[in-house]
């Protein structure tokens, strides 16, 4: 049992909670994640660690409401408890030797991208951020990114906020103008696929953070398998970050939809609370 310390809605679909987990707060590094269960009957779901406060023993996660478990999580308030909170899992994002980077975040992926940007900055790297959303109402963490970045661009599909279009346009502009040590892409699979395609001609090292369906997070079930460079990798122990130019995104996209019909049912059960952003 762990206690929720604070709760804040970042947009109509995305909520941030801080959980009391001092042991995890002590150890977690950017790029790592937790697996949680809301209650004793619940599913185990992975969420990236969005920040830690060691003094208060707090670990923050930011989640988008997409299905049964995230809906149930969104019903919890500060002071409520969660059945399980396991972490830190996965390998921290590799920033070794990176002096100048682009961090690309898409949708709720920005929650995962922000700690990576922060860690790069703390390590003395120049950080250029490009973040993208479907529309203005879904924008999250834009101020946080702007504040720490050497250059900053935000896009929305409809252009009501920031530049119109997707993240690839500002990204390509950056790549045309300067050279970078690495591009970090974190967001929906189709976005990461496009980013990988966009950076390929520039031969810049591109790292994507994969988010396949997971159960145990210790390499035991194999359901988080992704194909990278023709080899099977387990995202929970080998990742979640992989060389974006080698990932078989099409297979990953198909696999992530494996439980679609079941989730539709779970949503029915929670339907009055259901809010969805399709990204």
């Amino acid at each position: 049992m762990v206690r929720i310390l604070t709760r804040r809605e970042l947009n109509p679909n995305v909520t941030m909670i801080e959980v009391e987990a001092p042991r995890i707060a002590e150890k977690a590094l950017a790029g790592q994640f937790v697996i949680l269960r809301v209650d004793g009957r619940g599913e185990r779901i992975p969420l990236t660690i969005a920040g830690t406060d060691r003094e208060r023993g707090a670990v923050a996660v930011i989640f988008q409401v997409v299905g049964g478990t995230t809906m149930a999580l969104n019903e919890k308030r500060a002071g409520d408890t969660l059945a399980d909170f396991v972490g830190p899992l996965g390998n921290p994002t590799d920033i070794a030797g990176v002096k100048k980077a682009v961090v690309v975040g898409g949708g709720v992926g920005c929650a995962i991208a922000l700690p990576v940007a922060r860690r790069l900055k703390e390590a003395g790297a120049a950080v250029h951020s490009v973040i993208g959303f479907r529309s203005k109402e879904f924008v999250i963490l834009a101020e946080e990114f702007r504040a720490l970045s050497d250059s900053f661009a935000v896009t929305t599909d409809d252009g009501i906020f920031g530049e119109r279009g997707n993240v690839c346009l500002p990204l390509k502009k950056l790549l045309e103008e300067e050279t970078f040590d690495a591009v970090y892409a974190i967001g929906p699979l189709p976005m990461m696929k496009f980013v990988a395609a966009a950076t390929e001609p520039y031969r810049v090292r591109t790292i994507a953070s994969m988010n396949p369906i997971m159960i145990d997070g210790t390499g035991m079930c194999g359901c988080c398998r992704v194909r990278v460079g023709g080899e099977m990798k387990f995202a929970c122990v080998d990742g979640p970050d992989f060389d974006a130019h080698k990932i078989d995104f099409d297979e990953a996209i198909a696999r992530n939809r494996a439980y679609l019909s079941f989730e539709a049912e779970a949503r029915e059960r929670h339907c009055n609370l259901y809010k969805k952003e399709n990204n």
Binding site: I215, C221, G222, C223, R225, M232, E251, R255, A258
Partner: peptide
């Protein structure tokens, strides 16, 4: 092997 509907026994049993 990466298709939908393909599982390790561990995943299925877990």
């Amino acid at each position: 092997e990466g298709a939908k509907g393909v599982f390790s026994a561990n995943e299925y049993l877990t």
